[in-house]
Structure formats: C-alpha cells, structure tokens
Design a protein around this nucleic acid. Structure first.
Length: 491
RNA sequence: CGGGAUGUAGCUCAGCACGGUUUAGAGUACUCGUCUGGGGGGCGAGGGGUCGCGAGUUCAAAUCUCGCCAUCCCGACCA
C-alpha cells in the first residue's frame, strides 16, 4: 500500500498535518492562520455539535446569538479580561472601500472611518454582559442559562489546523445566577458535562481540575478544565468552565433585587469547547494509516464496498448490499454503500481507513456464493468473515465494542504516561524522555510555576479535582505542599 | 517582532554553484483507450507553465545582481 502519511514515529507534527489534509478534514486558507473546514471535517464537527447541544438543552440551557462585533470600549471595562485578550484582537476601523487612483484596485475609504472601532469577538463575555444588564432586574430573572454556537477570532502568532487557528468555531455558555453557590455549581456541572462528552463520545479520557492563577481565564475567579493526553506525550486542554464571580456583573453593572428587596451583583459563569476537539480526536486515537473515529462521532459508521467484475456481478452484490444497508439503517447505524465505479476496491479500502470509518463491509462474488460478508474494523485493522444472517446485531455490538476499546486503549496509554515525580531531576528527565502527565508537588506560587515553565516548558495543566490530600515537598523549592498537581508540556 | 529557509505544472519537487542540447523536466494527480478488480493495479496516449513580482547585467536569464512581495519553520503569545 502506498504510504501517504508521514509515520508518527518519524515526525508527529508532520503526521498530524498530513492526516488532516489527506483525510479531507481541512486545509489552510489563503488568509494566514485561517482554515477551510472541508465537508468531511465539518460533518465531524456537526456530530460534536449535535451531541453537546442536546446535553446543554437537557441541563436547561437555551441557545441565542450575539453579534460578531463588539465596541472597543466594552473590552476595557474588565481589567484582567482586556489584559488577556488585547494582544490578539482583530479590529474593524472602516466600513467602506473605494477605487484607488488608477481605478484598478481597491483602497480603504478614509472618509468611512468608524467613530468607535469594533473588535471581532475573541470571546463574548463583554457583549453578553452588557446585554444581560437589560435582561436582569429581579431574582425572578435568574438563573439565565444561555449558550451560543459561534465563530471567534484570536490573532495567534502561530497556528495549526484545528489546534490553533486565528478563527475557530466553538460554543460559549454564559450564565447568570443569584448566588455564588449556584454559579459554582453550574461551573462544576458543565465541567462534568464536558468530561462526560469527551470520554463517552470522543473516547478520550480526561483529568478534571482547576487551573492555576497563571493559566486561568482572563477575568475569572476560577477556571475548571479537562485535560487530555495526546499520543506524543503532550497535553491538550479540551474544554474550560469558568467561575467568573461578580467580575463581569461589576464591570457592566448588572444587579438584581433578591427576595428581601436587597440589591446585589449577579454571579456569572462562562464555558466553552471549540473545533480544537477535532484535533484532540485525531491525536488521541489515530494511527499511521489515518484517522480512527469513535463510532459515537463517526459521520459514517459503516461503509460497504462491493468487489466485482462487470455489471451483472455488481447487480447481485448491490442487491445484497442494499438489504444489509436497510437493516443497519433501521438499527440507527449510519451506512454508506460506495458503489462508485470510478475507484477500485483497494483504493476505497485505503480511503476509508484514512477517513477513520469504524467498520467496513466488503462484499464480493465469493460472499454472494457463501452467504457471507467480510468485516474489517478500523481500530485494530482486523478482518473476519461472517454469515449475512443477524448482521445488524453483529455490527451494532461491534460498534459498541470499538467505542469502548478505543477509549480503553487511550486510557491505558494515558495511565502508562502518568507518573508521580518527587524530584526536579526526575521531573526533567521524564519530561524529556517520554513526556506525559507528571504528578508533582508544588508550593502553590505563581513564581515557582513560572520558573519551572521557563526551564522545562512544562506548565501546570490542572490541580486535579479528585486529587488526594497528601503531604509533600515542592519539587522546585522544597516548600510544603498538600496535593500533587498535573504538569505537562501542552499544545 | 527576532533567527532560519523557500517561491518552477493542481500537488511534491529536480534543474540554478559554472547563463546557451530542455522546444522548461520528473513523480503524482487529471483526461482518453485498454487489460483489470478480495488492499491506493498494469500498459499506451494526451492536456496542463508569465519559472513569485519588478528592474538590471548580457548576444542570451528559471539560472547572475538589486529591490519588492508572499509563504513556511524555530522562538515570544495562546482554546
């Protein structure tokens, strides 16, 4: 088989890039840092969207849409927030073009300068809280539980398809609550929801935790995150949920009257996951032959490929294939019968492997004669020949098996690459040799974190929520610590 | 914004040190024909180029010089 992908062992970053392009997920746009998400890649995003959207609605949230443009002045209202985002904002200054002097090109019409510049949203807290001010007067208006599906722009220096692009797709939830406790409960509810989704749909194990002061969201009191581990030993933050306290309510003067007639600032949360999840999906599971998709998110769960000579053979095979497709579809399985005559069977095998379709069914003359089909599973690349009877049950079970087996594989990789470290020497050694999650004691200060990060490139991914209380000494300063935190090099 | 590199067919690139047998090439992709078909198949034919842009040197420039533009990689920044 022709090798179209760079091997992971040769160059992991190149493998990732090859895979994204060759599996037809996305490509670079002419605008630097932006990507074109191609139909197959977008269909994966749609699967992610529809599951999450269902989960958000099941927990009482509603969708709304706020504008792309945010007045510049809104941004400066929350000090930490502006600090965090100012350096990566795209700014709209004019609203009209005109022909240039020689009448051929276009230039910005200086007469069409905006009185106040507009920021293309890097996140929507400010525009949303300026709106919430109008919506919230009483405790009766709370809680306000809103999500939006949108694109945002963060002018990044260096970009990588799906992992970091100047424009990306995401959902952002913005909720308002009457009490601190309720807001914290919401923040935790969402981080659990994200963990549930990433583990059970994406098949990627997560560590839930709190971000350190250095790493938390600009403007938040606390940031909860789910951290995942990629096959190259680097961590990827897969989702965040922020407890914003009353910071944004204060900045935008959003107050409500409680049951006792007393006024108070509203408590806030915000949370999001992005198209970066697709990057996590790729890097957690895929191999040198291409993408491996978990059945729960695969746009095509089963592909049927006919193997034939001439039309009469194809007709017989199509007859069987269509029957199988029908019984599978009735079970809620998404099936594609690829009867294109323009590509050869071998070509199709390689193609669907590259695209990560979990199960392939091949049907040829031999199968027609024997009443069988050949079934190949993408995760293990194994094949078996089975009878056509009860195929729907067999495939349904197989899909469940694949889903759990790729999760287990990712989890055992994660566990193998998570180790407790007690000295700075070991820390540096393990970090360089294999990477992964390093559980180490830390004295709790930003200075120490920054020094470690500067010397080793490893950052604190999170302070795990289920971490045990355990006396120890900071690996860097030797000062006392009560809990191990998760260090890793990260994307 | 610092450091490095690269722009030649849709894509990946050779050719450039030493200017002229190269009518600008290869692989791949594409089109047609044919044999095929249980893992990206074989054979034959065909189409496709302002050699990044602009100026200069020269009898002659993809090749030498200068300027410009763009992109990529490594850092600082980050979901």
């Amino acid at each position: 088989m022709a090798k179209v992908l760079t091997k992971r062992s040769e160059n992991y970053a190149q493998w990732y890039n090859d895979l994204v392009i060759k599996a037809d997920l996305a490509e670079n746009s002419v605008v630097r840092g932006c990507m074109i998400i191609k139909p197959y890649g977008y269909s994966i995003w749609e699967k992610i969207q529809s599951e999450l959207d269902r989960m958000f609605k099941a927990t009482g949230h509603s969708n709304a849409y706020f504008p792309l443009f945010i007045p510049k002045s809104f941004f400066s209202k929350e000090a930490e927030h502006v600090e965090g985002f100012a350096k990566e904002c795209a700014v709209v200054t004019h609203y009209r073009l005109k022909k240039d002097a020689d009448g051929k090109g276009l230039i910005v019409d200086e007469n069409a300068k905006l009185e106040e510049e507009l920021i293309i949203r890097p996140t929507s807290e400010t525009i949303i809280w300026s709106t919430y001010k109008k919506w919230i007067q009483s405790y009766r208006d709370l809680p306000l539980l809103i999500n939006q599906w949108a694109n945002v722009v963060r002018w990044e220096m260096r970009t990588r398809l799906f992992l970091r692009t100047s424009e990306f797709l995401w959902q952002e939830g913005h909720t308002a609550h009457a009490t601190k406790e309720e807001a914290i409960e919401e923040t935790e509810k969402i981080v659990n929801l994200y963990a549930d989704f990433v583990e059970n749909y994406m098949g990627v194990p997560v560590i839930k935790g709190l971000k350190s002061e250095n790493e938390k969201f600009a403007g938040a009191i606390n940031t909860y995150a789910i951290e995942t581990l990629m096959q190259d030993g680097k961590a990827l933050q897969a989702g965040t949920s922020h407890f914003l306290g009353q910071n944004f309510a204060r900045a935008f003067d959003v107050k409500f009257t409680d049951k006792n007639g007393k006024q108070d600032l509203v408590w806030a949360t915000s949370w999001g996951v992005s198209s970066r999840l697709i990057g996590a999906l790729i890097m957690a599971h895929s191999d040198d032959n291409g993408l491996i998709l978990p059945p729960n998110l695969a746009p095509i769960q089963v592909v049927i490929v006919p193997i034939y000579k001439g039309n009469s053979e194809l007709d017989k095979i199509s007859n069987t294939a269509e029957k199988i497709r029908k019984t599978l579809t009735e079970k809620g399985i998404s099936v594609k019968y690829d009867n294109r005559d323009t590509q050869k069977p071998g070509w199709k095998f390689a193609e669907y492997e590259l695209k990560g379709v979990p199960v392939r069914i091949a049907i040829g003359p031999r199968d027609i004669a024997n009443g069988t089909v050949e079934i190949a599973r993408r995760d293990t690349l194994t094949k078996e020949v089975i009878k056509q009877e009860n195929i729907a049950e067999h495939i349904a079970d197989l899909l469940v098996d694949i889903q759990t087996s790729i999760f287990n594989r990712a989890r055992s990789f994660r566990d193998k690459n998570t180790c407790k470290v007690d000295t700075y020497e070991d820390f540096k050694k393990i970090l360089n040799e294999k990477g992964g999650f390093l559980l180490a004691h830390w004295d709790g200060t930003s200075e120490t974190e920054q020094k470690i990060s500067k010397e080793t490139k490893a950052t604190i991914r999170c302070i795990p929520l289920d971490g045990k209380i355990e006396k120890g000494k900071c690996i860097y300063t030797g000062k006392p610590s009560n809990q191990r935190v998760v260090f890793a090099k990260a994307y």
